[in-house]
Amino acid sequence: MKLRATVAAVSGALALSALVVPAAQAAGGSATPSKSDILKIREAAQRASSGRTAFTASGATDAPYDMDVTFSNFKITGAVKVGTTNHVATTVTYTLTHGADVDITAADFLTGPYIYKGSYDAPDNMLFGDNPATCTATSSTTASCKGNIDVYPAEGELMNSDAGTWHGAALAIAYNGQDPTSSSFDITKVGYADQGGLGTTLVQRYSKLTVNASPEPVTKGKTITVTGKLSRANWEDNHYHGYTSQSVKLQFRKKSSSTYTTLKTIKSNSTGNLKTTTTATVDGYYRYSFAGTTTTPAVSAAGDFVDVK
């Protein structure tokens, strides 16, 4: 289940509801939970987090109880590069430590990683995995877990302002036989644990870069004009648009070489276009290369060969 947290009030609830469907199935529920079933857990989590640290349910009425589970050794790729339409899955590993009273082998015990933008207490957005993580016990109280963060840019999960640094977190839910699709569902019997600040990653707007060097062939000593465009994904309209006012290097490598040398650095214009000139010397390949930013990954165009006569 893919959910976007737009206000802090529902952040903890979204974390719970992200794993509701698998939980219902594991607990023996024959029907997929309805929206009202999910809202039941959301509202309880909202009440539980009101006036306290986000996701903390201690002391709340009709809310899940605090479960003795913590998380560590959270590992995620340094950058998640997201385009306009394709599903992106990023693997996360972490260690789950639990009390002796927590049965992580139970069919309705679930855990999973997620990442959030902004503060842990009031995240601007959150991204989860489609499925719970898989865990392997490494001792009587620890387990090694592996799960995914699944991103669907075409489904409106991201705004352009979401690009940049995100933080890692993980949660666990013990349904203890409770089926959220049942009229007898008792949320106070559900265990819940959540922990943020486990790591960081960049969620970036996928970039593209083109190049065209002309004329070809060209006489030695004559001028070569090199054009191109730097663009990046726009998560709000699912198209690529020019990345403006960015420093981009024009590079060249001789036909006999495997190494590119920077000839000059120029900036993309107001539409992301690039244009400059250089002098033809020997046969070789021209390309543009962009070093990247925190919001947009580095990219280099494939070299365009020019035959010098």
Rank of each mutant, 00 (worst) to 15 (best):
S258M: 00
K75P: 01
K75D: 12
A48W: 10
G78C: 14
A137W: 05
L14Q: 08
G191Q: 11
L171R: 02
Q195M: 09
P33C: 08
S231F: 07
T61P: 14
G12Q: 15
A172S: 07
P297D: 03
I38R: 01
Q178T: 05
L3F: 09
M67H: 10
T225Q: 05
G221W: 05
A5N: 13
V308C: 13
G284S: 08
T244D: 07
N238G: 03
T271M: 13
L209E: 13
I115K: 14
Y114D: 03
K75G: 10
V299A: 10
Y288T: 00
W235D: 03
D162L: 15
S72N: 06
D179R: 12
A137R: 14
V88W: 12
S17L: 10
G177L: 00
I149H: 14
F74S: 06
T281H: 03
G59V: 01
E157A: 04
Y285T: 07
D307R: 03
S36Y: 07
V306M: 11
G272N: 07
L250A: 02
Q204L: 09
S268H: 01
F109Q: 07
I224T: 05
G221I: 00
A213G: 08
G164W: 11
T295D: 06
I76P: 10
D283R: 01
Y240G: 06
T262V: 08
Y285G: 02
Y94C: 11
V21S: 09
T259Y: 08
P113H: 06
Y116I: 06
E43Y: 11
V218D: 07
D66V: 03
V69P: 07
T56E: 14
Y286E: 00
S72Q: 05
D283Y: 02
D304N: 15
S214H: 08
L250F: 01
D101V: 10
N148V: 06
G51S: 04
K229F: 08
R232N: 01
L3G: 01
L230C: 12
S183C: 02
T95L: 14
Y65P: 02
Q251C: 02
T70P: 14
G129D: 08
